[in-house]
Design a protein around this nucleic acid. Structure first.
Length: 489
RNA sequence: GGCCCGUUGGUCAAGAGGUUAAGACGACGCCCUUUCACGGCGUAAUCAUGGGUUCAAUUCCCGUACGGGUCACCA
């Protein structure tokens, strides 16, 4: 693969959403540019006015920026080969189409849509693939000039060679050869003077000096026609890298209704952005070694086109969550704290808690940031619980053993000075008591944890919970438990 | 339907004629442990299928099945 003066481009349509598959294409495109010290270009393909969505371009900018996929040239920052919004480039395509007509690689077609529909109907009835029947392909020049002069609406079509075959090269799939007879004389310039996507793409990519075209594999079958166009212009053909799609299951691609097709969905669900990027990079690409957690910079360093897969990958939210959890564990306490705080505050408003101990206990236990509110909901308010909560089979604790355990630990906790109420000091005091009593750790700590949280599962054990809640609240909850336990007996 | 592409455990996948067919997630079990986790150890589970080629095919070739893509004045 050529790695000189690499220029890649991401060319999304502004639909208002960033599909995770599109984002992955952007990721690979960005990585390839950066790996070889090249430029990553953003071009907005907004030629479908019918589908214009308010604010959609901002979604693209926003997503790319959040992901760190910063473009070197683009609509907002400009660049040497602008404009970078396709609708602003409309004027330039007609001359290129006419150039092809002159060189004999394209022709005017005056067929109406109605005629085409009819032809296609007939072809379908006969069981033939509907294609243009090349009715106008060999119109005499005088006839063409006359119709043009009369102002009859026309399109410009690509003049595909009638025989022979076309081979194109893909970095992943190798050489693919198709008979020219299978190729349609596709429309290049529409009746309104606007280019079709396929034509605009070729012209824009050339004009923008794109060296590597990374795109979804749905374009594989139009690649031969692209090549013919490049050849007709005498332009250098870029390197193609067609990437397979991301599927929901073997037969369905990820779609909107699954609720997990868009980048924004995942952010909302509490996924950490570098983890999202990490996971989607791995969907369809395998690194050389055993490493699985990659930052964007590491992806750039490790990426190799040979590791791309030719078969579709099924999106696995479970694996993605696992990668997310691994990221959350890997980042610093401070960074995790910053991420977790808004989620903690959803259910835990108290300010008088030891937030750092809480964050510390949360970090290894959080798979998704959105799991956090439920985990910390016992802090502001102790929920109603049953004395059954004190039962633990392995530690042989239950409501009966909890009573003496808490009775023993209460004065110990009361004896800790207010200023000494830290995880360390509590630990030292409680463990001294445990040793004195000659009991198992859990005999004391399990009831303590239950009394402090009222929950069967908590982030952290008895000591940590006490540290988090503070002295006053901890003592009050233990007394409350003693009362409950006393009543029952 | 024509053409194009693909098919290794449940999922992502390594593998490039000779391997005990990696690894990760998930599942299950064990250890650690003050719950739940983290961490550690381990178990089960894969070459779609039929023919070739070859001393030897997951690997190369052909067919079949299955899946996907594409056949617009959409992008």
């Amino acid at each position: 693969m050529n790695t000189e003066n690499v220029r890649t481009r991401f060319a999304p349509s502004p639909t208002g959403f960033m599909h995770i598959g599109n984002l992955r294409t952007a990721l690979y495109t960005y990585i390839i540019a950066k790996k070889y010290g090249g430029k990553f270009i953003l071009r907005i393909e907004d030629t479908d006015q019918g589908r214009f969505v308010e604010g959609a371009t901002e979604v693209i900018y926003d997503t790319l920026r959040k992901c760190g996929l910063n473009w070197d040239e683009g609509p907002d920052i400009g660049g040497p080969v602008g404009p970078y919004v396709q609708s602003e480039r409309m004027g330039i395509f007609k001359q290129y189409a006419e150039q092809l007509v002159k060189s004999g690689h394209a022709y005017y077609c005056f067929c109406t849509k109605e005629r085409m529909e009819q032809v296609h109907e007939e072809q379908k009835a006969k069981g033939i693939t509907p294609t243009y029947d090349r009715h106008c392909r060999d119109l005499p020049k005088e006839e063409v000039d006359r119709l043009l002069a009369e102002g009859v609406p026309y399109v410009i079509r690509q003049k595909i060679p009638l025989d022979g075959e076309t081979t194109f090269h893909d970095e992943l799939y190798g050489d693919i050869t198709v008979p020219n007879a299978d190729l349609d004389d596709q429309i290049l310039l529409k009746a309104d003077g606007m280019p079709t996507y396929n034509f605009a793409n070729v012209v824009d990519d050339h004009l923008m000096g794109i060296t590597h075209v990374v795109r979804g594999n749905e374009y594989l079958s139009s690649a031969p026609k692209y090549n013919l166009l490049y050849e007709a212009f005498g332009w250098e053909i870029p390197e193609y890298i067609h990437v397979e799609r991301i599927m929901r299951d073997a037969t369905h691609k990820l779609a909107k209704r699954d609720g997990d097709a868009y980048f924004g969905d995942f952010v909302e669900k509490g996924y950490y952005i570098p983890a999202i990027l990490n996971y989607i990079a791995l969907l369809g690409w395998a690194p050389k070694g055993e490493q699985e957690i990659f930052s964007l910079d590491e992806l750039i360093a490790e990426f190799d086109i040979g590791g791309l897969s030719k078969s579709p990958a099924i999106f696995d939210p479970v694996k993605m969550t696992a990668i997310n959890a691994e990221w959350l564990r890997k980042i610093s306490h401070e960074e995790f704290k910053e991420l977790a705080l808004p989620y903690i505050r959803q259910t835990c408003k108290r300010e008088d808690i030891d937030i750092d101990v809480l964050v510390k206990t949360l970090q290894p236990r959080t798979e998704l940031l959105s799991d956090i509110p439920e985990k910390v909901d016992f802090i502001d308010q102790l929920r109603e619980y049953d004395n059954e909560l004190f039962f633990n089979k392995k530690m042989k604790t239950n409501a009966e053993t909890a009573l003496p355990a808490l009775q023993a630990v209460l004065p110990v906790l009361e004896g800790i000075a207010d200023g000494d109420w830290t995880e360390e000091k509590i630990h030292a005091a409680v463990f001294a008591e445990i040793e004195k009593l000659g009991v198992k750790n859990g005999w004391v700590l399990l009831p303590m944890r239950a009394a402090l949280s009222g929950k069967a599962m908590t982030p952290g054990g008895g000591i940590e919970l006490a540290a988090i809640l503070g002295k006053t609240e901890s003592l009050s909850r233990i007394k409350m438990a003693l009362e409950k336990l006393g009543q029952q007996n």
